[in-house]
């Protein structure tokens, strides 16, 4: 029944073969369910058959001779490579094609019915598949980056043996068994998203970031606030009928995605008064603050504070870079 195969890796074609060969599936729906359960997509489209006997075929491949192969130059001295050969010209068939054109009837005075109909996708047309959008934190690395940025310290379960021994050797029994510090994401975070005009090019990235943070921390652990230029005026729309303002009594880490009003300008001005107020508030309340900026550090405004952790919101940012800034996790008041 269950096959003990140690060192198993990802589910692959062998698992699919086992399932298809071993299980008594009968219908297409069963087959589709097997594919889906193992994480494979099921496509039921068949490739179009080429009808080579059709007289309407424009180009007859059977009459075209094979292209001559390109031979490499063998007498070149070492260290030199010949220039690439020119492309072989395509030989066109020596055919005069019969015209397929028909003489049209006179144009009717009344417009045809189809002219005013809605455009519909024809049954045999395949819808265009849009290319997937790349996120500023790629799917492969966003878990590590966000975990490093948002983890907080907590009391761990692993006993700190050296500290315990120290107590015992002194003849003291500690009231609490000393343990190593652990890190956790269970506290969640507050996510502040800047929807001001200067962030318009990044609005889709803001939505994607919200999804990524919720996927890593859990939807119920993330409170999302939206603001326009002033982060202290951020509002949460969990209840679509009543906005909840951002408050400082929530001491969970704050992750802000904003351009800080840079708007692509190269002059490094000091950060604006609204941002200064926000940073000071977070610093006074000891709220960890991480700011994701879609522009590189050369564009960042001057912030005369060590409190916010500024991160370039970019595919080249790594979890290691974040860990160097955050250290062993944020310390927050419980």
């Amino acid at each position: 029944m269950t096959q003990r195969t140690p060192n198993k890796t990802d589910i692959g074609l062998s698992d699919l073969l086992i399932a298809l060969a071993d299980l008594p599936w009968q219908t297409e729906a069963h087959k589709k369910a097997i594919f889906h359960a193992l994480g494979f997509a099921w496509q039921d489209s068949k490739p179009d058959a080429i009808d080579s006997s059709s007289p309407r075929q424009i180009f007859d491949r059977n009459r075209y001779q094979q292209r001559p192969s390109i031979k490499s130059v063998s007498n070149t001295p070492p260290g030199f490579s010949p220039p690439p050969p020119p492309p072989v010209p395509i030989e066109l068939p020596q055919l005069i094609l019969n015209s397929q054109l028909k003489v049209l009837d006179a144009v009717p005075e009344e417009a045809p019915e189809w002219l005013n109909q809605d455009n519909v996708l024809l049954a045999d047309e395949k819808p265009q598949v849009k290319a997937a959008r790349a996120n500023l934190f790629p799917n492969l690395t966003h878990r590590g980056i966000l975990s490093a940025a948002l983890r907080v310290q907590k009391r761990g379960k692993d006993v700190d043996i050296p500290r315990l021994i120290k107590h015992v050797t002194k003849g003291q029994i500690p009231k609490i068994v000393p343990t190593h510090t652990a890190v956790t994401l269970e506290r969640g975070c507050q996510l502040l998203l800047d929807y001001s005009d200067s962030m318009v090019p990044f609005w889709e990235d803001l939505t994607a970031l919200a999804d990524q943070v919720q996927n890593v921390l859990g939807k119920e652990r993330v409170k999302i606030y939206e603001f326009d230029q002033d982060p202290t005026a951020g509002q949460c729309w969990d209840n679509p009928l009543a906005a909840e303002p951002w408050r400082t009594d929530d001491t969970r880490p704050v992750l802000v995605a904003s351009d800080l009003g840079i708007n692509g300008g190269r002059v490094r001005w000091p950060v604006g008064a609204t941002w200064r107020r926000f940073i000071v508030l977070c610093s006074q309340k000891q709220i960890p603050l991480i700011v994701l900026i879609p522009w590189r550090s050369a564009y960042w405004p001057e912030i005369h504070s060590s409190h916010p952790i500024m991160v370039h919101w970019n595919p080249h940012t790594t979890a290691t870079m974040i860990k160097k800034r955050v250290g062993a996790g944020h310390q927050i008041q419980s």
């Binding site: 029944m1 269950t2 096959q3 299980l23």
Partner: peptide
């Protein structure tokens, strides 16, 4: 239902 039975059968067949 069918989906549950198929998924469990696959898990038992493959050991996953």
């Amino acid at each position: 239902n069918d989906n549950i039975a198929i998924a469990v059968d696959i898990a038992l067949a493959t050991g996953r």
